[in-house]
């Protein structure tokens, strides 16, 4: 199994929770108040509620359904219905690997190695309703025409794909660091053009 890009560091501030998918697994990715990040199976062991709907209290993730709290190791530390009970150590969320490099959040279901650090800066993370192949074709086609909003060599655009379902791909776009605001806006619109093209091809 490989390490997959599931979002941007800037999009997951401290105390926040998001849903991610990689290699057929549903995951919750969350950041504790102290800034540490964790990725778990997106299922509360109690009654199966998606933990990605949960909330962060301090350095624990709580499930929205009955408020069970899990610490960073995934262990359940509080069952609000029985506040005086010490939850058995057997109650814990399943953990996955997660690392952050170059402003990108990467997850893996096993202990796959972290990707190399790069000097590129994250632009956007979004989902395309098309296969990775269709997206790559669209990247080429929309880059080649040379007219705005197509990228230029100096933008050093790099496109990372995370295939999440057949015909559905999460895309992370990186660029040269420190680009001026108008350039970021333009390249963001190029992302939209690439997506339109990929999806048009997919349905054609």
């Amino acid at each position: 199994m490989t390490t997959r890009p599931v979002g941007l560091t800037r999009d997951l501030p401290a105390g926040r929770v998001m849903h991610a998918q990689a290699d057929g697994k549903d995951m919750v990715v969350w950041r504790a108040t102290d800034g540490t990040i964790a990725a778990w199976d997106n299922r509360c062991p109690h009654r199966g509620m998606a933990l990605s709907h949960g909330f962060v209290r301090g350095n624990r993730l709580a499930c929205l359904y009955h408020g069970w709290h899990y610490d960073r190791s995934g262990r359940c530390g509080l069952i609000p219905a029985h506040p005086d009970l010490e939850p058995p150590a057997t109650i814990h969320a399943t953990q996955y690997g997660v690392v952050e490099t170059g402003g990108v959040i990467w997850v893996s279901a096993d202990e796959a190695p972290a990707p190399d650090d790069s000097d590129l800066a994250p632009l956007r993370s979004f989902i395309v309703e098309a296969s990775e192949d269709a997206l790559r074709d669209a990247q080429e086609a929309t880059s080649a025409d040379g007219a705005p909003p197509a990228p230029e060599a100096s933008d050093r655009v790099s496109v990372l794909c995370n295939p999440i379902e057949p015909g559905r791909t999460q895309v992370t776009v990186l660029t040269a660091p420190g680009l001026p605001l108008p350039r970021l806006r333009t390249l963001s619109r190029w992302c939209e053009a690439m997506r339109r093209q990929a999806e048009a091809k997919e349905t054609a």
Binding site: G7, L8, D11, L12, R16, M18, F55, L64, F126, I127
Partner: peptide
């Protein structure tokens, strides 16, 4: 696929005086 929307929704939900409706829960 909408990280900017997610963070904007969170900002609205954090406003003082925010009230909920079914389908939009409290920021516990």
């Amino acid at each position: 696929g909408y990280p900017a929307i997610r963070n904007w929704l969170y900002a609205v939900r954090s406003l003082p005086g925010f009230v909920t409706m079914p389908g939009i829960h409290h920021l516990h």
